[in-house]
Design a protein around this nucleic acid. Structure first.
Lengths: 340, 340
DNA sequence: CAAAACCACGAAAACGGTTTCGTGTTAATA
DNA sequence: TATTAACACGAAACCGTTTTCGTGGTTTTG
């Protein structure tokens, strides 16, 4: 016994007026007489009429949907970004369609093609590692060529002309390294991933610059480059056993937490003997023991800004192809893994 | 210089055939001659024709979108569920629209009303705490009365007739408590939230039952009920200073991590002096120090199953109103915060 | 009192597809 | 050769809106 959704046609038939009259009456058009409008509006309210979004989308060529394509959602940073996007989108009456590329190029392409066929008004995305590795961005270019606005965040590329929003990863690594140097650390290790991830590269650069600026010689022996995001426990243990270091900068939380555990197992005290700073101020940093001094990425704000930039483009009439790249400043959150 | 999306109409005009012929040709209809089909298909391929999703949705009254409404996304459990949903939905050609209720009744209502007007084929949701507190489920009933399939997960209610999927929280608390008892613990504390959250209540029940089954008297002095999800540090410290306990069961990770820190500050050793078990096996449990023995909720599987149940209902023709409640079994993941 | 202006509403096209039904042409049958 | 069947395609309705344009009836104006 379903309460079928009521349409303009139903109302029109019931009230013996035309569909156009109903449509206009519900929009409070001046064309329609007071009496008729009241009658129609009352009827619509009584039967809880709500216009069909799909029909409106078809007519307006506007879906009020934003497509968000990210590599992973079980990842604190991306999650906070999604929250930021959703938050802003919601206030503007937009819904968020989330697609996961799972770090795979193919999935990224499929998801985008799917959504690009009318399902969304614009994209917000962060590149999969696979995509960055292949260096193939044709799927992004196709989308922008069709006039669909695109905002890239965090993992971006120069190969595509669109709005971008990143945090200054180089600066983040720089201030983190500087902090360690100011503590008096001389042998600062870096734990990172291989360079094809744009962010890892930038962070490494910041680390190197800080060392150079402070006349500390770079020692490749105390830079650990992990082949992928997966944890390689042996590599870790081995590194921390033989490395002669008094501070560690890690490009993510998990590396930092894991590193801290290794050095504690080796009998070192944090932060007395060795300091740690990790990227991405997430749950782990906050609740680690000792709590981890971290570089905050401000994911939520990033999401909000991305949504704002996108919706602005979506709703603006002018087709001018001017794109901006916003750079957010990271913040050092001092906790117990460094000396205050 | 935009490459406008090509439509059937464009193809029809260009090839001087009717729109219907183009439509049929692209579906490889027997009605159309081999020659014409080849010509049309070649042309469509060349210009990369893809049908407009919105138009198809309007015609079919099927959007191939699933609406997911959850209280929060920056929460490991919900995140894993979303991943599970997305994973299954993706294989079935569905997209996932994520809406956050932010634990607010009003937002939950608004989001559902928004999506219910044709944007989605069905809902997967977990109730906001506000909704559970008010005990008002009319927005859910309206949706189901309109014939929109609904699957409730984790935070569910008996007040609504629909498919549900939960984990056996009572059992989870029971096996956790039992594990602690088997370790020889006698004074097992419980750290929980107030009972209006269905899951907290079930977990408390399991805890109580395990104590009863093992003839341990319930001591209300060692049960800490926090008013909300927000951390109340003082309450924590106070509790752990005065409580005479040798084990702790916490209804979430954060409570457990924080509790562990408190008792360590008090000079106790984990797990020698006191054991900890926490609910929701997330990142924190894995990377805590010591790592936290936890009750795994299997969020991803839950999401997959929810999506499966929903899509089944969406695609099934029969209108039979038979609903099922699936109950997943939680698992104890033993780590270093308990004695093996 | 005829012409112009206004009012209140309906018809129809449009958005981009799918699908049913009809129809003109050719080929097979009686 | 007349009849019928098969073939290949087009017209039109439909999904639920919005919006432009037209029109019959009433009111104002000259």
């Amino acid at each position: 016994m379903l309460k079928q959704k009521i349409t303009l046609k139903h109302i029109a038939k019931e009230l013996e007026v035309s569909i156009s009259t109903v449509s206009k009456a519900l929009k409070n058009s001046e064309e329609i007489s007071r009496d008729t409008k009241e009658k129609i509006q009352a009827f619509a309210k009584l039967y809880n009429y709500k216009p069909n979004n799909i029909a409106i989308s078809l007519k307006n060529k506007r879906t009020k949907n934003i497509g968000v394509v990210i590599p992973d959602i079980v990842h604190h940073f991306f999650t906070t970004v999604v929250r930021g996007i959703e938050k802003h989108a919601n206030t503007k009456g937009y819904n968020v369609i989330v697609c996961l590329s799972d770090e795979s190029f193919d999935k990224e392409v499929i998801n985008m093609e799917m959504l690009a066929n009318g399902s969304i008004d614009g994209f917000i995305m962060s590149l999969s590692s696979d995509t960055q590795l292949r260096n193939d961005y044709n799927h992004l270019k196709e989308v922008t060529e069709q006039g669909i606005p695109l905002v890239l965040f965090d993992r971006v590329t120069n190969a595509v002309n669109c709005d971008k929003i990143i945090i200054d990863d180089k600066m983040g690594a720089y201030i983190a390294t500087k902090k360690l140097i100011e503590e008096g650390r001389k042998k600062i290790a870096l734990v990172t991933t291989e360079d094809y991830l744009s962010v890892s590269k930038a962070r490494t650069d910041g680390y190197l610059k800080a060392l150079n600026d402070n006349n500390i010689k770079v020692d490749n022996e105390i830079i650990l480059r992990l082949p992928s995001m997966g944890m390689q426990e042996e590599l870790f243990k081995e590194f921390f056993e033989k490395a002669d270091i008094d501070a560690v900068l890690c490009v993510n939380e998990i590396f930092a937490i894991y590193g801290m555990r290794c050095v504690k197992d080796n009998g070192l005290k944090i932060p007395e003997d060795i300091s740690f700073i990790g990227f991405t101020d997430g749950l782990l940093s906050k609740y680690a023991n000792p709590s981890l001094t971290a570089i905050a990425q401000h994911g939520e704000k990033m999401g909000e800004l991305a949504a704002e930039m996108l919706i602005e483009k979506v709703e603006s009439e002018d087709e001018s192809e001017t794109f901006q790249t916003k750079i957010l400043e990271p913040t050092l959150i001092e906790r117990d893994s460094t000396i205050n």
